[in-house]
């Protein structure tokens, strides 16, 4: 009797499993690519947390010097985690007026001795401190592209971890297969860190295609990124010694760039190099 009951139970379990498994898979596919437990638990509120964690990373980048929701916008806000190192270095933070302004009373004046009031940026590898918040932000909202790009930038530049940068960017690509920003950053990993110009050039191409597709679809893609893609392509062409392609990319860049004089000079130089090149046999 027990044996028959066991067999019946087994059959029931098998039937239920075969019935629900396709539905479960479809539910997962339809809802989110991350498949994370957060998705089920938190719903759309996780995007709010993702934004908060990204802002936390920015606050860490400034060693806790960060405006709260009560602070009025300042002439120069500290939220520039996504800027490149060069852009950072150009800024002068020594005499700026911060979001804090002047102390309004004695409570404010004394209180300022108990929290960071100086605008600084992490350096000497301490940039790593922002990474947990970026990973958490990506976990909360896998479609937040800025998170992957920012983390990858610091990983591949000052932290010298190109493999980790690539892993994170590919994770981002899984959730955002049409992101031209991620392809651009991935190309940079290959070009600057792995010194693989061919792969980098292919990735830039992919990035350009994605950008154009987004543009054609009326998605209003970021024009600044378009310039960056073309700029990186020009560098890759120069590195590969492909003057024809370099000229073509420079001319494309000239159409959208504001620094037309500099670009024109570069075009003239490439044209001169092409003219000096011996004709093909």
């Amino acid at each position: 009797m027990i044996r028959w009951l066991s067999i019946l139970l087994l059959v029931c379990c098998f039937t239920l499993a075969t019935t629900f498994e396709p539905q479960f898979t479809r539910f997962h596919r339809e809802h989110d690519s991350s498949g994370s437990v957060f998705v089920a638990l938190m719903g759309d509120s996780r995007r709010m947390f993702a934004n908060h964690f990204f802002a936390e990373a920015d606050a860490y980048f400034h060693s806790g010097f960060y405006p709260t929701i009560f602070d009025t916008p300042a002439p120069e806000e500290p939220g520039h985690l996504t800027e490149t190192q060069e852009e950072h270095d150009k800024e002068d933070h020594t005499h700026e007026e911060t979001f804090l302004g002047k102390p309004s009373d004695w409570i404010d004046r004394v209180g300022r001795h108990f929290y960071p009031t100086v605008h600084t940026h992490l350096s000497n590898g301490h940039e790593r401190e922002i990474l947990p918040w970026l990973e958490l932000s990506a976990e909360m909202d896998p479609r937040r592209i800025e998170t992957y790009v920012t983390a990858a930038y610091w990983l591949r530049t000052t932290l010298k971890k190109p493999d980790q940068a690539e892993r994170f960017l590919r994770q981002g690509l899984d959730a955002n297969p049409d992101s031209y920003e991620i392809y651009l950053e991935l190309g940079r990993v290959y070009f600057y860190n792995k010194k693989d110009t061919r792969v980098a050039r292919n990735l830039y191409n992919l990035s350009l295609q994605k950008w154009r597709r987004a543009d054609a679809a009326g998605g209003g893609p970021d024009g600044h990124v378009y310039e960056e893609i073309l700029g990186e392509m020009v560098r890759a062409d120069r590195d590969a010694g492909d003057l024809d392609q370099q000229l073509a990319d420079l001319q494309e860049l000239l159409k959208v760039s504001v620094s037309k004089d500099t670009l024109q000079r570069s075009i003239d130089e490439v044209k001169a190099q092409l003219a000096r090149r011996p004709p093909p046999h």
């Binding site: 209180g111 001795h113 108990f114 929290y115």
Partner: peptide, 23 residues
């Protein structure tokens, strides 16, 4: 203003060093 005391933890977290003894 208890926020004085609470916010001081940021100085420890981000290695800002000690608070001025006077304050």
């Amino acid at each position: 203003h208890l926020e004085w005391y609470y916010s001081a933890q940021d100085l420890v977290v981000h290695d800002w060093g000690r608070i001025d003894w006077l304050y």
